[in-house]
């Protein structure tokens, strides 16, 4: 199949960028979207041009590196699929495909389609863990956890940290990302001691990183390659509300 790509090119973090058109001739429908970009890059290099930079690593939909806005949709048209798992058979011959990086202030563009998602790591630093120093653990079966609880925790724990939720959110909110972690840890017995402190700190960090608030648009859930539910956001709001009424400001003060 033959396609026309319109791709965001930006030589560096501070340099201005623009959409540039490329033809992608005889593309196999069995290629993944990234393999299609590989082919385009190979051709660019043969013509002595600079290839298009994009983040990718596992190409199995699990590492969360790939991060492309395709025709205005994060990770492209296929539901519950990271772009590395998107295959060209979902497009038609002659399609024009616009490809852009995630766009929010918290994810500055590094080059072309590559952005810096360090803000997500910093949200995790702000309490997105259970403090369990190595060596201190008791036998794994001492605490029983109902299957349903673990399954719900796992649904949230699947987050691959790709940032598509942020990219798709009209507010540029990282709520789904933070909420999935808060839900995963907040559901498990091991996560209880730090539960409310965690909620306060992670929410505070989202604001510090200049992510937007949540209007409950629901776009994040749709864009999420792991189909994480906005129920997690409800849970985050509940924990935060409870925390702010009980724990008070102390917990946050420590963090900032």
């Amino acid at each position: 199949m033959n396609l026309t790509l319109r791709i965001w090119r930006q030589p560096g973090p501070r340099a201005p960028g623009k959409m540039v058109a490329y033809d992608a001739g005889d593309i196999s429908p069995d290629m993944s979207f990234l393999e299609m970009l590989d082919v385009v890059n190979e051709r660019l290099m043969q013509r002595g041009e600079v290839p298009i930079a994009f983040d990718h690593d596992c190409r199995e939909g699990i590492c969360g590196s790939c991060s492309l806005m395709i025709n205005g949709v994060a990770h492209g048209p296929l539901r519950g699929t990271a772009v590395c798992q998107l295959h060209m058979r979902t497009f038609k011959d002659g399609d024009v495909i616009a490809v852009e990086p995630w766009r929010v202030r918290a994810f500055p563009v590094v080059r072309d389609l590559v952005v810096d998602r360090g803000a997500l790591d910093r949200i995790v630093q702000a309490g997105g863990y259970i403090t369990a120093a190595t060596g201190a653990a008791q036998d794994a079966n001492t605490i029983l956890i109902p299957k349903e609880t673990v399954d719900t925790a796992m649904d949230a724990a699947q987050c691959i940290g790709c940032g598509a939720c942020v990219a798709a959110c009209p507010n540029g909110s990282a709520s789904l990302f933070a909420a999935s972690k808060l839900t995963h840890l907040g559901l498990l017995p091991q996560g209880q001691p730090e539960r409310y402190r965690r909620a306060l700190r992670m929410v505070a960090q989202m604001d510090i990183e200049h992510f937007g608030g949540c209007t409950l648009y629901g776009e994040c859930q749709e864009a999420c390659p792991k189909q994480i539910s906005i129920d997690t956001i409800t849970r985050m709001n509940r924990d935060f509300l409870r925390a702010s009424l009980t724990v008070g400001r102390g917990a946050v003060a420590e963090s900032d």
């Binding site: 060596g135 653990a137 299957k147 498990l188």
Partner: peptide, 22 residues
């Protein structure tokens, strides 16, 4: 043996039986 204990303490959601055991 210690690894599994360690990971569970960190909140790794290993699959479980209905009875709550791993």
């Amino acid at each position: 043996v210690q690894i599994i204990d360690q990971c569970v303490a960190q909140g790794v959601p290993f699959a479980r039986e209905y009875g709550g055991l791993l």
